[in-house]
């Protein structure tokens, strides 16, 4: 983390730095100490860092999952059954009320248009794009990732 922060000096790089830190982490999400460190580095308040973290949906706070499954629920995917895919995923992975899987490894997020409308329905599992989905294909991919 120190290595990453060293690369960025001015405050405008806050989001870039957080991206880089998250990319390097096994578990997605930042803890209290890390947030304090980032605030100190950029000479801004912890509140300001938290403000940015909570504004952007791709920047999670204190999340201990390994994989994030982002299911697009915007109109193009929606009319091709993405809500049903979300429901299927939740029951298949046994998700709790925070949409974290029973084994604690997956987080399911309903996200807005991923720009994959020509191959809907689509999801992103971490950085990987999976398209033209149905339940069987989704199940297969999740078992590969797991």
């Amino acid at each position: 983390m120190d290595e990453i922060l060293k690369r960025y000096n001015d405050r405008s790089y806050l989001i870039e730095a957080i991206h880089d830190i998250l990319d390097k982490k096994d578990e997605k999400g930042l803890g209290d100490e890390e947030i304090k460190k980032i605030a100190k580095h950029f000479k801004i308040s912890v509140a300001e860092v938290l403000g940015v973290l909570t504004f952007y949906s791709m920047l999670p706070v204190k999340l201990k999952v390994k994989h994030t499954i982002r299911v697009c629920v915007s109109p193009a995917c929606y009319i091709k059954g993405s809500r049903e895919l979300v429901e299927f995923l939740k029951s298949y992975l046994g998700c709790d009320e925070n949409n974290v899987s029973r084994d604690g490894r997956f987080l399911i997020e309903e996200v807005e248009c991923l720009g994959l409308c020509d191959v809907a329905p689509a999801v992103m599992i971490d950085d990987r794009i999976v398209v033209n989905l149905d339940r069987e294909k989704l199940k297969r991919v999740i078992e590969e990732v797991r």
Partner: peptide, 25 residues
């Protein structure tokens, strides 16, 4: 390059500028 972080409103030009400045958009 500056990366967005999952916010539709950043497509609005002044929100986008705020985001480049490292702030809530």
């Amino acid at each position: 390059i500056r990366r967005g972080a999952g916010s539709y409103v950043c497509g609005e030009e002044t929100a986008l500028l705020e985001s480049i400045e490292g702030k809530r958009a």
